[in-house]
């Protein structure tokens, strides 16, 4: 049932490079005994440094669980997860953008960014410029002093993205970050993320329900089956990246064909 369209196995030493993510025969179960739920697996996935992998699949198939495994918040029940060649630990190798912004309400917008800069070990005298830089990157110049509940949900999500970029992690994990946003904001942020990751050259793992979002963002789209999720399609996407016009990408025939293919596989896998 698995159709692999990438070129076979990679040399083992590659998996130790910064930004490489490797899941070998990974299964994760929540709970014990009769209450145990197998959330995901077995999944094998080799992600090269610099790839933008999008995980797509029905609700509850284990996408968030996979991200939590890569982030180091969960240990796999079976199999191994390595990130940059080591077992993942929270905050060490990968930056995470959660489905909800999860900003600290007792800190201002700028204060939330500062916290990330401090944790990233950035010297204090550089905070001001770095903070302004990060907020500029997500289009929120001059919002430093705002309270987080005074800005919109979409703006909060952009602050969450900005603070995650503070650490310059070789791996970036995003769990349906745009799910709660309106279509217009979502498209803007998709273009932002596409541009930003093309420039930084890090590895990205992005979770979504949407075939459209998957094909637009990913350099590779991975479709998961129903729970427990396994890989049913692993599809390279060759659409142009970097400084390109988003309208052109979305308007092309190749985009439409890939999107239809992914949408079909997601539907088939969920049935």
């Amino acid at each position: 049932m698995v159709s692999r369209e990438t070129d076979g196995a990679r040399p083992a030493e590659d998996t130790g490079r910064p930004g490489a993510v490797r899941l070998a025969d990974v299964t994760h179960r929540y709970g014990e005994g009769d209450d145990a739920v197998t959330a995901v697996g077995p999944v094998g996935l080799d992600i090269e440094p610099g790839e933008f992998v999008v995980l797509v699949g029905a609700s509850g198939c284990g996408k968030s669980t996979l991200l939590r495994l890569i982030a180091g918040f969960e240990r796999p029940t079976r199999g191994t997860v390595t990130v940059s060649g080591a077992a993942p630990r929270p905050g060490q190798q990968a930056g995470v953008v959660f489905q909800q912004p999860r900003l600290l309400p007792w800190r201002t917008v700028g204060g939330n960014i500062d916290l990330a800069l401090r944790y990233a070990g950035v010297p204090r005298d550089l905070w001001e410029t770095r903070r302004a830089e990060l907020l500029h990157r997500v289009g929120l110049d001059g919002t430093e002093r705002r309270r987080v509940w005074e800005i919109s949900g979409g703006q909060q999500q952009r602050v969450a993205i900005a603070r995650t970029l503070a650490a310059d992690n070789p791996v970036l994990l995003l769990d349906e970050p745009f799910a709660a946003l309106d279509a217009l904001t979502r498209e803007r942020l998709q273009e932002d993320v596409r541009r930003v990751t093309a420039r930084t050259g890090g590895t990205t793992v992005f979770v979504t329900h949407s075939a459209d979002e998957a094909v637009f963002l990913g350099s590779r789209v991975v479709v998961l089956s129903r729970r427990p999720g396994t890989v049913v399609l692993d599809l390279p996407v060759g659409l142009p990246r970097g400084d390109v016009d988003a309208e052109d990408v979305r308007g092309g025939a190749e985009f439409a064909a890939l999107r239809a293919r992914v949408a079909h596989e997601v539907k088939a896998a969920a049935a």
């Binding site: 929270p90 995470v96 007792w106 944790y119």
Partner: peptide, 27 residues
């Protein structure tokens, strides 16, 4: 929990999480 997790994901240590998340949320 979700805010503690967010702070740890940013690279905060256990002590950082207590000082920056647990204590303010308990204030």
């Amino acid at each position: 929990r979700h805010l503690q997790e967010a702070a740890r994901a940013l690279g905060g240590s256990r002590r950082d999480v207590v000082r920056d998340v647990v204590l303010p949320s308990a204030l």
